[in-house]
């Protein structure tokens, strides 16, 4: 278990040097400029539009990690056989998985922190340009809570990447499965909600309803971590809901990591 931190650090360093971070820096600067300029077009909703754009950018920036870095750093390790270099050092496979997850979490964290700083700078710039009454209801806590939950959502997706990389042999397949998880995770709740509606005029067989419900429980409900709307309207969060959401995220991550370790321990690395 002593090897988890060195693996996390080596993953973090390798991820940082893949120039993705430079891309994020450029994107964050553009974000500042874009959010400040465009929000002026929305007369009464300047703050809402700004927060909305900024939080969308944070989510997008966070998603760079599972889609562009995590799969490369994990499936790439197996495909390029860099994993031999690590495992040959008497490192257990469970430490490898946990170290990788921690390294990816650090990468996600640093990207989200940079984008969060960019967001705060953008809001500060907007207060200098636009009339003060637009920002009367602005509070920082919804913005922070929403960002924290977006971070947790990305960590959930990172943990599914680890699972897919543990059971598949190609990075392409892992990417495809991660993409499917992302799409299902963002839409399944709406699908189930629609099915539960009465008087929709659509006949849905009980089997399809049961399947959709099963999918809702199996796949992560990523839409739940999207709190942009509440933050944009500066709506107060119910602490109980946030706690439950946090617990849901952490439990889901634990289950995914457990499964990833379970499968990874049993697979051959030819």
């Amino acid at each position: 278990m002593n090897s988890i931190l060195p693996i996390a650090v080596i993953t973090f360093k390798e991820g940082l040097r893949r120039r993705v971070l430079y891309g994020v820096m450029v994107a964050s600067l553009l974000l500042i400029l874009f959010a400040v300029l465009i929000s002026g077009l929305f007369m009464r909703d300047i703050l809402k539009v700004m927060v909305d754009i900024c939080l969308s950018s944070i989510s997008l920036g966070g998603l760079l990690v599972p889609f562009f870095l995590a799969i490369n750093l994990l499936a790439g390790d197996i495909e390029n056989r860099t994993i031999y270099t690590l495992l040959a050092r008497n490192i257990s496979r469970s430490s490898y998985i946990l170290g990788k997850f921690l390294g990816l979490a650090m990468l996600t964290g640093i990207i989200i922190i940079i984008l969060m700083i960019a967001t705060l700078v953008a809001i500060y710039c907007a207060t200098l340009i636009y009339p003060a009454h637009n920002f009367l209801h602005f509070t920082l806590s919804p913005l922070f809570i929403s960002t924290l939950m977006a971070f947790l959502g990305v960590l959930v997706l990172n943990s599914t990447v680890l699972l897919w990389c543990s059971v598949t042999t190609s990075s392409f397949l892992a990417t495809l499965l991660t993409l499917s998880t992302y799409i299902i995770g963002h839409s399944v709740e709406d699908v189930v909600r629609f099915m539960n509606l009465k008087n929709t005029g659509v006949e849905i067989s009980p089997m399809i309803q049961a399947t959709a419900k099963a999918v809702l429980y199996i796949f992560p409900n990523l839409a739940a971590f999207d709190l942009k709307q509440q933050a944009a309207y500066s709506l107060p969060f119910v602490s109980q809901e946030i706690t439950l959401l946090g617990l849901y995220g952490l439990s889901y991550i634990s289950i995914m990591l457990f499964l990833a370790i379970f499968f990874f321990k049993r697979r051959d690395l030819p």
Binding site: S3, E14, N80, R81, T85
Partner: peptide, 23 residues
């Protein structure tokens, strides 16, 4: 290994540091 693969963006020194830290 037969075709040794190290992390391309890291230096040999960083790899060796990793090996020492794990130990």
């Amino acid at each position: 290994p037969e075709h040794p693969s190290l992390y391309p963006h890291l230096s040999i020194k960083e790899h060796l540091q990793f090996g020492c830290r794990v130990a």
